[in-house]
Design a protein around this nucleic acid. Structure first.
Length: 344
RNA sequence: AUGGCCCUUG
């Protein structure tokens, strides 16, 4: 791995992609790693699909794509929801002799899942000769996010059963439980959710804030705000803005506007080390909507400008709805007029 | 420190 490729990679991923591309242009005979840097940069950019065109240029050049090239390309496919390209890369991988690379297979499986090709993801999973924890996780979260939560939970349980088995002892980890929790949320499956949470506590995965956030969200979505709040209060790790957002949204959905606003006010004081963001305001506005707290909602909406938090259509929709239902149509109309985007 | 699974709103 040459310094030049390293430099390109740095520019393409953390600096400026156009600059990386310009530097790349000046290289007479780019190496595979040079190409990889550029493809990786595109894959992580706002236009991941450009990784595909970059890859095509590479195939016309004299150097060969390697496993990393395929990996970056597939990452781009997953982000761009490029199914056809995923299939094409799959056959390329099989032909080029890296078809048994577990990391690559998992990247492919994830790309399939993210593109909505869950059957192909399952098939690939079944055919893999070696699977590691990430392979299981990729399929579990793919199923959960792809509206097949029962299968996600089934897989999660099958994985837990394997503990004690002599072969492939696959311990569900933090990422695994995120997928399982997401499946529970969708189903409103409280019993399953409790079981997952028991497992989390047993393994002390609740020392991880991301896991806690997911549990809070799961309980809130299952309508069990008090369970969410119990964890929120008893957390051993420090709360992130996402923790607060999830909890505020939980109270909002429960119709407990007072409590939601109380939490918002608490973090707005600034002693918690988190800054309310655009989602915090969305949750708080949502709380006002559910509880009919009109003045509070309008106040929050105005605070967004003061705190330089970006508004989107949802924020506007919320206040307009709030004002409209309170009969304050003139104010609602003024807000609609002030919108920088097209109303829907 | 060149590759996979990753929480809230979308």
């Amino acid at each position: 791995y040459q310094p030049r490729s390293k430099f390109l990679d740095f520019c393409a991923t953390s600096g400026s992609l156009p600059y990386a591309a310009a530097v790349f242009q000046s290289i007479p005979f780019p190496s595979t790693n040079d190409w990889n840097a550029l493809i990786r940069g595109h894959a992580q950019s706002h236009h991941p699909i450009n990784a595909v065109t970059c890859y095509l240029s590479m195939s016309r050049a004299p150097c060969r794509p390697d496993a990393l090239t395929c990996s970056f390309f597939l990452k781009a496919c997953a982000r761009a929801l490029a199914r056809i390209e995923s299939f094409q890369m799959h056959s390329h991988v099989l032909k080029s002799g890296v078809g048994s690379d577990v990391l690559l297979q998992t990247t492919l499986l994830d790309a399939y899942a993210k593109c909505g090709e869950l059957n192909h993801a399952c098939k690939l999973f079944d055919e893999m000769s070696k699977r590691d924890i990430a392979s299981w996780n990729a399929l579990i979260s793919g199923l959960a996010q792809g509206n097949r939560p029962y299968e996600a939970l089934e897989l999660f349980n099958r994985m837990s059963e394997r503990i004690g088995d002599d072969r492939a002892r696959m311990m569900p980890n933090e990422v695994t439980v995120l997928g399982a929790l997401s499946a529970c949320s969708q189903l409103g499956a409280i019993k399953e959710g409790d079981k997952v949470f028991d497992y989390i506590k047993k393994r002390r995965l609740d020392e991880n804030v991301i896991v806690c956030n997911a549990v809070i969200d799961m309980y809130a979505k299952c309508g069990m705000v008090e369970k969410a709040y119990a964890l929120f209060r008893g957390m051993k790790c420090s709360r992130s803005i996402i923790t607060w957002n999830s909890m505020i949204m939980g109270f909002a959905m429960d119709g407990n506007g007072e409590k939601a606003i109380e939490l918002y006010n608490h973090i707005a004081e600034g002693k918690e080390g988190v800054e309310p963001d655009s989602i915090t305001y969305l949750a708080a506005l949502c709380a006002c909507n559910h509880a009919g707290m009109v003045d509070e909602g309008v106040k929050l909406f105005e605070l967004m400008d003061k705190h330089a938090v970006c508004k989107n259509m949802k924020h506007y929709g919320s206040v307009v709805d709030l004002l409209g239902r309170a009969g304050r149509l003139d104010e609602a109309y003024r807000i609609i007029e002030s919108m920088p985007m097209l109303p829907d």
